[in-house]
Design a protein around this nucleic acid. Structure first.
Length: 780
DNA sequence: CAGTGAGCGAGCTTCCGCTTGACTT
């Protein structure tokens, strides 16, 4: 029916654009790529100069058929996919698959979804840029080769179903290396000196001035000597200097920065943020959420200005244009911003509202004036020493963009918090209230969070906005990395205080190294990484992507044939694959820890079929070796001989209860007590190695009581049918299937017949009960 | 559901980037 058919990538985009174009235009979407390398096998014809073998994936067949129909009904086809490598390839695949002719097919691009931009695009169509398409083919083929040649090596040499790839393997490497940096980190201690001085103003009101000594002491002795001197020193204000300082707002959000800020400010995981953002995009509240651009359309800049003028005034407005600094950015879209900047808040779930507000604030702030501060530095001389105390204060003179938005930092360090200073004069003599030397330690590097890993990948130019979240899932699903919490350790530190001419020494403790939702490498992750590092350093090198991107750029510029680029790569890469297959033993990360004092046999750790395992003896020994699984939080890299030997102490006999043995052990679901064939979970505060007979008995009794309370009713007619009390309230259980009790009926008063009636009714409304893993299997 | 750690060795697994649903609890 329509004369013109416009094909874009996203259906939400299609809806918006259709409104801008007249009746003669029908706008539809391709839902991303419609064609890809064949799913099974490498699907690259190596004998035929690396010709890719493409197919329409099954879930896209219906869509392609519909597109074909629409194309047949239209006169002119406009391909409006994004203006980047992937977008150009999408347009080309559409051409190929829909058999579009060059004369009635027009390629158009726009970077922002505004009426002007789209009408302008319609006026200057071009043809498909085949060089850019070739760059995409090179990228696609290279990734397939790397992934499908490396992974099988891992299946053979380490464990089946593992994977490797240009992006994921680098992500794992970052985490493994960081963990090793942390393990080998040796903190260096020093003594930090702070002085609290008393100051009287004109009216005689007393206030305090906090200052820090400019240098630290390496040893306790030096700190002590310093305090000795302070006993009879005079402290005089030597200098007061005031300096204006400024702070500028950050650029509007990209995918990566949105993920980081949403994690810090709202506590969302990377994938959570993307799901919420998708909702906001689909409801028309924000622009596209997968972008590497910090650019705002002129329309957005103007409306932001109007908005700022209306709620804050002229002084607060400053139009800014940001340019990207990230490597490999392709900038096919705008930054992530509210579609309508006059909407301060939106309708939706709590999470959607929160994320929207974050985006609104960040966008608005980016168009606001700098915040202005006045920084005051006061230096205090010590009469008998060349050391100097310095107090720093900062006063906000003009809030500027801080009126709406303050960016969070990963390492919130309030040690250096700057405050307002009391009024001061040069040459004033300050009596001290106390001077404290505190032992401090250098800090180990921080483990990655999901969001900080994304930032690092972006910095290295590895991965794209659409793949950050999936990459993080992949490395966790493969068992290379775990998101976990870690309890901190207590550390002792000393402090010396000088109060009223008396020096006192104190022993203090602090908890350090507490981690929440951080990424830890697993043993498999470490072994896979080391293997790849040994044989394929060229691929998991941090610069590999940057280097191949340079080649792809040459291809896109028409200066290099894509097949030549791939050939050059493959001639170097494939021999490494062959070499690693032929010249390596199986890698299980084995480490010998020492000898078992009881048997004199060697104790070792390695990756077994079911995960990390400790072993006493050798497989070649006459007697079979003993095995024990390694506990969660332990690693084959760091476990000590003592810790490994501990593992063999379980299962252990705790004692007897009702003439039956009680056995303590650690199973798949944590520590437990087994008694007479039943399992009782151990609470967190009880150690299976130390739990006593009495404690075990009380656990068994407690569980029995809870189970007794669980049963509301049983029936003589059918012992398998029971009315039970569960987590979500009372329910009926029969043959391992549970049924909801209607609110109109009281569970205590149900008769056997009532129950059967409920089962009958519920059973028809709900389909056959599926296993826990049914959904998972289907997903595949 | 709380175990396993050798073995016949079939037949399978896997990449990165573009896009959204269609399934249940």
């Amino acid at each position: 029916m329509g004369k013109n058919l416009v094909i874009v990538e996203s259906p939400a985009k299609a809806k918006t654009i259709e409104k801008f174009l007249g009746k003669d235009f029908q706008v539809t979407s391709s839902f991303g790529h419609i064609r890809d390398l064949k799913k099974n096998g490498i699907s690259i014809d190596f004998k035929n100069n690396y010709t890719p073998i493409y197919e329409v994936p099954t879930d896209k067949k219906k869509l392609v058929a519909e597109l074909k129909k629409k194309v047949a009904d239209s006169e002119i086809i406009w391909l409006a996919s994004d203006e980047d490598r992937e977008g150009e390839a999408i347009a080309w695949h559409l051409c190929e698959e829909l058999k579009l002719s060059t004369e009635n097919t027009k390629r158009i691009v726009f970077h922002e979804i505004t009426k002007e931009a789209i009408l302008h695009a319609i006026e200057c169509p071009r043809t498909i840029d085949l060089a850019l398409v070739d760059a995409q083919q090179a990228r696609r083929v290279l990734d397939r080769i790397v992934g499908f040649e490396l992974s099988p090596v891992l299946w053979k040499k380490i464990k089946p179903s593992l994977s490797a790839g240009r992006v994921q393997s680098v992500a794992v490497r970052l985490i493994v290396e960081r963990e090793r940096e942390i393990n080998s980190f040796v903190p260096i201690e020093s003594y930090r000196v702070t002085g609290i001085f008393e100051i009287k103003d004109d009216k005689g009101v007393l206030s305090e001035l906090n200052a820090e000594l400019q240098n630290r002491f390496k040893t306790k002795k030096e700190a002590e000597q310093f305090l000795e001197k302070c006993k009879d020193a005079t402290f005089t204000i030597a200098d007061i200097s005031k300096k204006p300082t400024k702070r500028s707002p950050s650029a509007p959000f990209t995918t990566s920065t949105l993920q980081q800020e949403a994690a810090r400010k709202l506590g969302y995981s990377v994938s959570q943020t993307m799901m919420i953002a998708q909702k906001l995009y689909e409801s028309g509240n924000i622009t596209y959420m997968r972008t590497d651009s910090v650019n705002l359309s002129s329309l957005a800049v103007n409306t932001a200005k109007e908005e700022i003028l209306s709620f804050a005034g002229e002084k607060y407005s400053k139009s800014r244009h940001f340019t990207t600094t990230s490597k490999g950015a392709q900038e096919a879209h705008e930054a992530i911003r509210p579609t309508y900047l006059n909407k301060h808040t939106i309708e939706g779930t709590k999470q959607e509202k929160n994320l929207y507000e974050l985006i609104w604030k960040r966008t608005i702030a980016s168009q606001m004036a700098d915040a202005e501060m006045e920084k005051t530095t006061v230096s205090i001389n010590i009469s008998n020493s060349n050391e100097k105390f310095v107090a720093v204060g900062e006063v906000l003179v003009f809030d500027g963009f801080l009126k709406v938005y303050m960016e969070s930092k990963d390492d919130d360090d309030d040690e250096n918090e700057q405050k307002m200073l009391p009024p001061l004069k040069v040459n004033t003599v300050l009596p001290y209230k106390k001077i404290i030397c505190t032992e401090r330690f250098t800090q180990r590097p921080a483990r990655y969070t999901e969001a900080s890993l994304v930032r690092k990948l972006e910095e290295l130019g590895i991965g794209r906005p659409s793949t950050y979240a999936p990459t993080i899932s992949t490395i966790q699903n493969r068992g290379y990395v775990e998101k976990a919490d870690k309890e901190g350790e207590t550390r002792k530190y000393k402090s010396l205080s000088l109060i009223k001419g008396e020096i006192k020494e104190l022993d203090n403790t602090e908890v350090v190294g507490t981690e929440k939702s951080k990424l830890f490498p697993t043993d498999t992750g470490a072994v896979v990484n080391d293997f790849l590092n040994e044989y394929f350093d060229a691929i998991i090198n941090y610069n590999f992507t940057a280097n191949v991107e340079k080649e792809f750029d040459l291809v896109a510029a028409g200066k290099l044939e894509w097949r030549k680029a791939i050939d050059k790569f493959y001639k170097g890469f494939h021999p490494l694959v062959e070499d690693s297959l032929q010249n390596t033993e199986k890698k299980v990360g084995e480490r010998v820890l020492g000898t078992d004092p009881k048997t004199g046999k060697p104790v070792s750790v390695k990756i077994g079929r079911f995960g990390a395992v400790a072993q006493i003896g050798l497989a070649t020994d006459e007697e079979k070796p003993q095995f024990a699984s390694i506990k969660k939080g332990q690693s084959i890299e760091t476990i000590s001989l003592e810790e490994a030997l501990e593992l063999f102490k379980l299962p252990r006999q705790v004692g007897k209860y009702e003439d039956e043995e009680m056995i303590a052990a650690v199973g798949r679901f944590g520590p437990y007590i087994r008694h007479n064939g039943t399992f009782y979970s151990l609470p967190k505060d009880l150690d299976p190695l130390k739990v006593t007979e009495d404690e075990a008995i009380s656990i068994i009794d407690a569980k029995r009581l809870a189970d007794k309370n669980k049963i509301i009713k049983t029936f003589t007619e059918d012992t398998d049918l029971r009315v039970l009390n569960g987590r979500f309230g009372p329910y009926i259980s029969k043959e391992k299937t549970n049924y909801k009790i209607p609110k109109t009926q009281k569970p205590e008063e149900l008769s056997y017949e009532d129950c059967l009636a409920i089962i009958d009714k519920e059973g028809t409304t709900k389909p056959v009960k599926k296993g826990k893993y049914a959904a998972k299997a289907k997903k595949k």
